[in-house]
Amino acid sequence: MMASSDVLAVQTRGLTKRYRRVTALRGASITVPEGRISALIGPNGAGKTTLLRLLAGLARPGSGDVEVLGGRPAQHPSFLANVGFLAQEIPLYRRFTVGEHVAAGAHLNSRWDGAYVRQRLASLDIPLGQRVGALSGGQRAQLALSLTLAKRPRLLLLDEPVAALDPLARRHFLAQLAEAVADGGLTVVLSSHLLADLEQTCDHLILLAAASVQLCGDIDTLLAEHQVLIGPRKDTTAIERDHTLVHAVRTARQTTLLIRRSGPVIDPAFEAADVGLEELVLGYMSQPAGPRPGRLTTIGEQQ
């Protein structure tokens, strides 16, 4: 049985990666506790793939530290046995059958749960004799996930796994993922440029924009630490002094503030409302680009 854990599956400090002149990731500090399903959210080009590749050991950091399952990511069998990585382009061979992929997986991996993958594929109605080229997009994604899970990884990194799937296939894919986490011993980080698809499946959030981490933490904690204030158009210097202003919309008559609270808000002119996840993410994304203050990047997590 899985349980919330304080042990970290992933921890990075000041992680930076440059490709030629482009900074793909700047000073990224994140933590993901074990047993979580973390949504890595950000617009295209924000650095999501770069971060996943650094965690998978497929790229080396320019500077900063990265620790995955207590060690440094590397293209080494002892590391790779524990980490599953599913790239955006699903690595399947169209001319080979499902069964041939299963046999290859058994051959290539030191730890391989053949019974698990066969039972999964049966429950998904994916016949072993079928050629991969004849499967639907949803079935191919399910097959790739089943094959990756058969390695029994402790950390699963998925790059935009549901982007190409229709709503039903997306739901089945996420259900299979959540079920694997419910079995215990697995942490997942999956990227998407859309949050709505993942909202119910994930309990942890990493928000990237313009190569920088904007937010990272437990979703419930993040929501509890933020608040929307709605009031008349007036000077908000006092509120901005006591709390951290994330985003403000000011019209001729009204002021709407998204703040990270440092204690209760005492201003009778403003009505306080709880913030939803989508509102929170959009608030941070519509900020001017650049790294957030250090303490903001680790809300709800131990340093």
Binding site: M1, M2, A3, S4, G35, R36, I37, R171, H172, L174, A175, Q176, L177, A178, E179, V181, A182, D183, Q200, T201, C202, D203
Partner: peptide
């Protein structure tokens, strides 16, 4: 079971727990 709820709804297992 948590596993049954999660398989039917794709909700995070920690949420059910």
């Amino acid at each position: 079971t948590v596993r049954e709820v999660v398989a039917a709804t794709a909700v995070n297992p920690n949420t059910v727990l």
